[in-house]
Simulated scan of single mutants.
Amino acid sequence: VAPDAVAEIAIPRVKRSAIVEAFAQRRGLMLVSLSEMDLHAAGDRCLTQSARSVGALGVPSVAEAAALAAAGEGARLIRPRIKTAAVTCALARRVQP
């Protein structure tokens, strides 16, 4: 995925921080903060499962659920979660009307 194809960073509301806000602003990306209810609504569309995510927020993958919830109903993952020492992320594509 080309960097300019990414429009938003989606995170659980409880993970919002000045560091994430600064990163989004520096990259010119909209920051979407999601409620636990938003994450749970997208949880059944996650492709991977993390015991840590289940324990923390009750969804199989926080990154995947956030990406899917922000992209909306009918969105699909184009990159399941990938984890580094510092960050976990996933990419979802919005369905065009």
Rank of each mutant, 00 (worst) to 15 (best):
A2M: 05
D4I: 14
D4M: 12
A5Y: 01
A7Y: 08
A7F: 08
A7V: 14
E8R: 15
I9M: 13
A10E: 00
I11K: 01
I11S: 08
P12V: 05
V14D: 11
V14M: 09
V14C: 15
R16G: 15
R16D: 14
S17N: 10
E21V: 13
F23P: 05
A24Q: 06
Q25W: 08
R27N: 10
R27Q: 15
G28H: 04
L29S: 06
M30I: 15
M30V: 15
L31Y: 03
L34P: 08
L34N: 10
S35D: 14
E36N: 09
L39H: 08
L39Q: 07
H40Q: 13
H40E: 13
A41H: 00
A42G: 01
A42H: 09
G43T: 09
D44N: 11
R45T: 05
C46D: 04
C46W: 07
L47P: 09
T48C: 03
S50P: 00
S50H: 02
A51W: 01
R52F: 12
R52A: 15
S53E: 01
S53D: 05
V54T: 09
V54I: 15
G55L: 12
A56H: 03
A56F: 07
A56S: 09
G58M: 04
G58P: 11
V59Y: 05
P60A: 07
P60K: 05
V62H: 02
A63L: 05
A63R: 00
E64W: 10
A65G: 07
A67I: 12
A67T: 13
A67L: 13
L68W: 13
A69L: 05
A70D: 03
G72A: 02
E73V: 15
A75P: 07
A75F: 02
A75S: 13
R76A: 01
R76W: 11
P80Q: 05
P80A: 06
P80H: 04
P80L: 01
T84Y: 14
V87M: 10
T88W: 00
T88I: 14
L91H: 13
L91N: 12
L91R: 08
A92H: 02
A92K: 06
R93D: 09
R93N: 11
R94K: 15
V95N: 03
Q96A: 03
Q96K: 15
Q96Y: 11
